[in-house]
Design a protein around this nucleic acid. Structure first.
Lengths: 114, 114
DNA sequence: TTGACATGCAACCGTATGGTTGCTAGTCTG
DNA sequence: CAGACTAGCAACCATACGGTTGCATGTCAA
């Protein structure tokens, strides 16, 4: 085995769906709100925006599919909570790519200085 | 000023377009290839995939618009190179959200333990 | 100069996406 | 129970997206 052989479940390259879920301003602000720690109902999350509740619901489903968020029924309302794992994967992706790039630069520098 | 007041240009919340550019497997593999350090022509980048050169070109334009990549004309070919700044922004985003979440958990824990 | 090669441009296509509206169905509360 | 509130479902719409094909253009090399 070479490096980093599944220290965490990892889900091998499922980055695109996560990025897709984050590729929308509305969704980003929902994530921002929920990452504050408090769970919120759909109505609450709709409040700030000038969108319909339905639109917000759709966005929440997208975030839910990407596991960035999960919902819990509480009586008549549906409370959404933040789930940190995918965001950590995003960070991991950025780290891997950045590191690969840095190493490439280092090799280039070493070659030029010879 | 509170914290981290523009240590870099920062471009204040333009995360969504970056995530959108990364929300596609094809584009992710292009990024993976280019972050190895070597610049590549469109034809070269098309080689591995079973896509048309045109499709790859479109993906490259998307990455270009997001500043993840830039192209340099070299005779009859167009060489694309990786640009690390947006990926660093991605990492920064993940850091900010993760930290906010961690702090929320810490506050909760402190409250419970009181 | 003539191909062969590397791209660019434009039109076209099917499907996904972001939003809306209208209507229905649980769930509290007075 | 009745009304108010929270949410789900479905249909519909315009536009964006991923891909393709066809044709034109620029460039290198024999």
């Amino acid at each position: 085995m070479s490096h980093k052989t599944s220290s965490a479940p990892h889900r091998r390259r499922a980055y695109a769906p996560i990025f897709a879920a984050l590729a929308d301003e509305t969704r980003l602000s929902i994530v921002a709100k929920l990452s504050e720690g408090q769970h919120r109902s759909i109505a609450q999350l709709t409040e700030g925006t000038r969108l319909t509740r339905q639109a917000v619901t759709k966005h929440l489903r997208v975030l839910e599919r990407a596991k960035i968020v999960h919902s819990v029924r509480a009586g008549r309302e549906n409370l959404f909570e933040f789930d940190p794992a995918p965001i950590r994967q995003v960070r991991e992706y950025a780290d891997v790519v950045s590191e690969q790039w840095d190493q490439a630069l280092a090799r280039l520098k070493a070659f030029v200085e010879e």
